[in-house]
Design a protein around this nucleic acid. Structure first.
Lengths: 363, 363
DNA sequence: CTGTTAGCGCCTTCAA
DNA sequence: TTGAAGGCGCTAACAG
């Protein structure tokens, strides 16, 4: 049996109100009384029912996170860690909603369980239909988008375009002139990031006046389809000297496939990932690191005041710019390890390290 | 402003009670009335406040999970996925409590926020002090332990000992006679699994009458300390022909280190992991797979009825064996890929593929 | 089948 | 500094 404030009050010889105040450190209770109440609560191993206090205050003390795909996916997990770190300091709890398949999707949008059950909802890296986006807005509950091009709502994203440009640039500076980009087909959810990364790649190559073609965009059937990518790579009439891969997970798979057939990185081909997945360091994968924990932390930092302000309308006025939704962009960082280097001069698909000129081919 | 049942009742011209019943499909409301209520609710885009109904019913509709370490860790994420899959079907929500450092630990055990806030708590792979275990019991709420040797409480674990034995056995059958085991030092939380894995390794080698020594237990400073392990490996007077590694994460790190110095797997040394981490397949790591999602799912399956039964004491009687805490053990499975094979006969640290005899050493 | 009457456990006026 | 009264939004027990 969990005891209630009533029991504590009785034990401490005070009113329920006093117990409530003492337990919340409202500062309206004398030290002695407070001590007595605390002791009584201790003895009964009492703790406040959030449910009841939620009903009374209108605040649930919970933040929801809507996640796309598996919770076990590196990205999702890391995001949650960042969010948690911040929520912890705000005494808020973390409620998770996962949308992993069509079924879960239906269910979520049919019941919108988040409604009134959390004070704000962080929507992580999602490919939402406009209909779904609308439904979320209708929730009339603060939303924070993570890695999504939603206008008019607070959001946090990494700078995919700039990251990809930086990645491409370093390959260009190393002397690469034939750089392929590897995409994954079915990444549920991460479509925006993916699109922006290709975009960055394209932009940088164009800016450098380097040749580029549709043929240089390789696509994997899944994030573990390194073999498929390798096949496409080796089918190219003129072999690219570098591969920019959409994500580390896929890049690692590509690397593994290369190694399996004896292609060395960066000896035969440079491979650049994107993310800085936990395993990237282990295997020495050069990559464009995105600070996922920061992403989560910032999203939470945006959500918390909204949550508070929502229940407490007057707090809103304290913010300098009343209602401009904040849009945060966190920068990426190029991490050089062992898979990118100067292109080799000899062998397949010859390249010059200082010019874009290319002539006869090896095939 | 979110509307209440009151508004819906008014709009539909019925009592609040009827609204409540209609919305819960209690089957006590006529189809027409139900339709009217639903319509009204729709128009007001109303949805029930879980907080209020929780207070009234005494059920929060939430299951808590206490997680050790990072949410982004493969194991934790996978567990959560399994749990989520089951909860989803029970209309329960997932509340997360993470204990990642001393601070979070203190905080959790000081305030026990899960109390009265969730209907049951799943305690995942944890190294709890007995004091902490006691605190959890004090929660007086249903607990389900995952991968922990807690007696008298429902629990789900994988069979680490048997898994390790199987792993060792296959190496023995392949002809290995000098097999080292690699442990990680500071795995916060997973100490039990780790201990049981060494135990299985030890038992199997002993059963086979194969020589074994303290020296053959290598230890990494962290799960990414493949280099350190390699150093220890290469310092052995007589080189082991196989390495059984406590976890895939560490095994991958070891593999990478081997490759970096030119040691082939399994050509020069066989490497066997444990877990079946997402990356194991990518890199062809042979491993003892533990079905983590099943683990999570089973834990949830144990927790859900407890949660229900807790609030609804009479339901308990429906279970065949009233109060025997269930202890589930889920089996592991050996997954052979590219890193384990017969030991080589020539070269360093000679081995015989059919005898345990060993003579002169190479050093 | 529907409505009325009481709470669930806490917090927030308002008084003392 | 403390207490009494009322209500947060919903559900349950009991009538009709």
């Amino acid at each position: 049996m969990s005891s209630s404030m009533h029991d504590v009050a009785e034990r401490a010889g005070v009113s329920i109100t006093t117990v409530s105040r003492a337990l919340r450190q409202s500062g309206l209770v004398s030290p002695q009384t407070t001590a007595r109440v605390l002791a009584a609560a201790q003895e009964l191993s009492f703790s406040v029912s959030r449910t009841a206090s939620s009903l009374a205050t209108g605040r649930t003390g919970r933040i929801g996170v809507l996640v796309s795909g598996h919770l076990g996916a590196w990205f999702n997990g890391s995001i949650l860690d960042g969010i948690y770190a911040h929520l912890r300091d705000s005494e808020l709890e973390l409620l998770i909603y996962r949308i992993n398949d069509h079924d879960e999707r239906e269910r979520f949008f049919a019941t919108l369980p988040a409604r009134r059950n959390a004070e704000a909802l962080i929507v992580a890296s999602f490919a939402l239909t406009s209909d779904e986006q609308q439904r979320l807005q209708d929730l009339s509950m603060p939303l924070v988008y993570l890695n999504q091009p939603v206008t008019g709502a607070p959001s946090v994203s990494i700078d995919d375009v700039a990251g990809a440009r930086t990645g491409a640039r370093h390959l260009l500076h190393l002397g690469h002139r034939r750089i392929a980009f590897v995409q994954a087909a079915d990444q549920t959810g991460f479509v925006y990031s993916a699109a922006r990364r290709v975009q960055g790649y394209t932009a940088e190559l164009d800016a450098a006046g380097v040749q580029r073609s549709e043929q240089l965009i390789l696509s994997a059937r899944s994030v573990t389809d390194g073999e498929g990518v390798l096949a496409q790579y080796l089918s190219q009439p003129e072999l690219p000297t570098a591969l920019m891969v959409e994500s580390d997970e896929l890049a690692l798979s590509v690397m593994a496939a290369c190694w399996r057939v004896g292609l060395r990185t960066p000896g035969d081909v440079s491979v650049l990932g994107f993310d800085d997945h936990a395993m990237a360091e282990t295997f020495g994968l050069s990559t464009v690191a995105q600070p996922v924990d920061v992403l989560g932390r910032e999203a939470a930092a945006l959500a918390v005041p909204l949550a508070a302000g929502w229940a407490d309308p007057e707090q809103r006025s304290s913010s300098p710019e009343p209602d401009l939704p904040t849009t945060l962009t966190v920068p990426t960082r190029l991490v050089l390890r062992d898979t990118t280097g100067r292109p080799r001069r000899r062998s397949a698909g010859r390249t010059g390290s200082d010019a874009a000129t290319s002539g006869a081919r090896t095939s």
